[in-house]
Structures are given as C-alpha cells and as structure tokens.
C-alpha cells in the first residue's frame, strides 16, 4: 500500500532531477555559444549573436 502511495512522488522527483540536469546543460550551451567573450568563440558566433539579440561586443 505504501509502495503505491509513493509511486507518484518518486516519478516527480525523477522528472525534477532529470529536468534540472538537462536545463543546466542547456544553460551551459547558451552561455558558451552566445555569451563567452573568448576571441575565437566570439568571431565564430558573431553573426548569430547579433541576429539573436545577445549583447555581443
């Protein structure tokens, strides 16, 4: 009976953990491609950064 009651919260915890991890990776990707100011990255991503409305220079 207890197992049945615990099923829903366990699945929610699973979603929250997976979601947090995925969002951290997504945030990292957006920061590296859109915001890090290292010269090579900046030059390669330059046009996309401007067109996407990121602060660029």
């Amino acid at each position: 009976m207890n197992a049945h009651i615990q099923t829903a919260p366990a699945s929610r915890t699973g979603t929250l953990a997976a979601a947090t991890f995925a969002m951290l990776i997504g945030l990292g990707l957006v920061v590296v491609t859109g915001h890090v100011q290292a010269d090579t990255l900046h030059d390669a991503a330059h046009d996309v950064r401007h067109a996407t409305g990121f602060p660029c220079h």
């Binding site: 997976a18 995925a22 990776i25 945030l27 990707l29 491609t33 859109g34 996407t52």
Partner: peptide, 21 residues
Amino acid sequence: GLSVLFAMLVYSGYALILVPL
C-alpha cells in the same frame, strides 16, 4: 557555415531548457 552550426547549438541549448519545463 559557422552561423548555421552556432544557430543549431543556441537553439539546442534553448530546447534543453524548454523540454524539461
């Protein structure tokens, strides 16, 4: 070509935030 690559990376990053939400 770099613009295509980086647009895919930026939108993949956004998708990795959107799908979990």
